[in-house]
Every structure is written in structure tokens, then in C-alpha cells.
């Protein structure tokens, strides 16, 4: 019914760097984190063998979507997103609903490292997983923009349930658009994605829609990667 695009990007295409993760951990002074960078570089090398990136999106065609007053309508399904998401999607006409994952091996690696009594590596692996998942979403967003450009359409920024005032419970409705077990990602009753390090969301598409930066200044979620990106310290 919907156009479906499915990819398996290579790890080396994802531009994973230890510096972003170090910044997420809070460090900006090179003297304090030298030892941690060595550990992270080793973990990134191990991750290359464990991560199996997979991602994709479905296209909701033109004139099936609209947004107003904190609500987004996607092919008849109503999403209560709050204004932070509905505002920039006001000129939405179609949409790409996307999901991406680092793959099932990552969760096992993270759990095993913690259970073996190495909490520092376990913590870094967790941050690394989030970084890889977001990089997969960045990679996929470019594919969505390429698709839209081919149709002479423009794209919004990407928005995910659980962020920007959009309740994570709405993720179930979003997953209804995907073929069964799309990219191997499933949802628990409490809207937790499995594998754990996965990203899902929407990119608005339309002839007049504009890409707008995340309005982090009006959001009160302190520990958010989107906010993190704004605070990135050059290292």
C-alpha cells in the first residue's frame, strides 16, 4: 500500500566519533579524558563487529497528511504531538515514517559488559549505542531528503515520539504503518523499542514545508540528544 524503502548501511558510512560521545559524557578538557578516549576507541572498533545497522521508511503520499493545533493527521491516523512538532509540520502534505536500529547484538554486548562487572565500559557502550542509532537516523534522513527531492518536494526536520513534547505511547500508532517486524524492530506494551538502541519517527514532506531547527529553548527535557547537539563543545 505504501512505498517501502529498506537499507543496511555500513558501519563506516555512519561517521561515529569518540569525540561526540566524550562531549555527551560532559568533558571538554582534553587532559581529563585522554584515558577515556582510548577505551572508547577500542569499543568503537569492537562495535564494528557487533553492530548490524538496518533502517528504512514508508512513504505516505501527497495530500494524505495535515497538521494543526498540536495534532498531526497521517493518512487518517491522529497524533497528539504538541505544538513543537505540529507547528513545523503545518505545511505537511505527505510524510516518511522511519525506523532504524543498531541490531540485536548490541543489547547483548551492553548487558554482558555490565554483568561482567565493567560499569564504565557498560556506560560507554550505552552512549555509543545511542550515538550509532542517531547516526543511522542521520544517514536515513539524507535518503528521505533524496527521495523527496526526486519528487520535487521538500522535507521537515525529523521528529520522534518521546521527544519534543510528543508522548512516547504514540509510537504504537506510528508502527502501524510499517510492514510486520520491519527492520527487526518491535515495540513492547510500554512503547520501548527492541532492539533497545533504535530510533523511529516522522519526516514531514511537502512542496512548501521548511526544515526548522529543534526549538530546544521551549522544551524542558534536560537530558535530550537534540539539546546535546546544541551544546556540543569542540574537542
Amino acid at each position: 500500500m505504501y512505498k517501502v524503502f529498506h537499507y543496511k548501511p555500513k558501519f563506516n558510512d555512519l561517521n561515529i566519533s569518540a569525540e561526540n560521545i566524550i562531549s555527551t559524557m560532559g568533558y571538554s578538557d582534553q587532559n581529563t579524558y585522554t584515558g577515556y578516549k582510548t577505551i572508547l576507541d577500542e569499543l568503537i572498533n569492537t562495535a564494528k563487529e557487533i553492530v548490524t545497522p538496518e533502517c528504512g521508511f514508508v512513504i505516505l503520499s501527497r495530500n494524505t497528511c495535515s497538521a494543526s493545533h498540536g495534532t498531526v493527521l497521517l493518512d487518517g491516523a491522529e497524533f497528539k504531538t504538541d505544538k513543537i512538532v505540529a507547528g513545523p509540520l503545518k505545511k505537511i502534505s505527505g510524510a516518511a515514517i522511519f525506523v532504524g536500529t543498531v541490531g540485536p547484538g548490541f543489547d547483548k554486548w551492553s548487558r554482558k559488559t555490565f554483568s561482567e562487572g565493567d560499569p564504565l565500559a557498560g556506560y560507554m557502550i550505552d552512549l555509543l549505542g545511542s550515538e550509532i542509532a542517531e547516526s543511522i537516523a542521520d544517514w536515513l534522513e539524507k535518503k528521505i531528503v533524496e527521495y523527496a527531492a526526486g519528487e520535487n518536494l521538500k522535507c521537515s526536520n525529523r521528529y520522534s515520539p518521546g521527544y519534543c513534547g510528543w508522548n512516547v505511547s504514540e509510537q504504537h500508532k506510528l508502527f502501524n504503518f510499517f510492514p510486520k517486524d520491519f527492520c527487526g524492530v518491535t515495540l513492547t506494551e510500554s512503547s520501548l523499542m527492541k532492539p533497545h538502541k533504535s530510533v523511529s519517527g516522522i519526516v514531514g514532506i511537502g512542496p512548501e514545508i521548511k526544515w526548522k531547527d529543534y526549538p530546544c529553548e521551549v522544551c524542558n527535557v534536560e537530558h535530550c540528544y537534540k539539546n546535546r547537539d546544541k551544546k556540543l563543545v569542540k574537542v
Partner: peptide, 14 residues
Amino acid sequence: QGKAFIPDMLIAAK
């Protein structure tokens, strides 16, 4: 005081 971060706490705990 913002002079140490979670990894420092974890390595100390280890």
C-alpha cells in the same frame, strides 16, 4: 561541582 562526570564515578566505583 561539575568537575567530574559519570565515568569518573563509575571508575571510582569499580
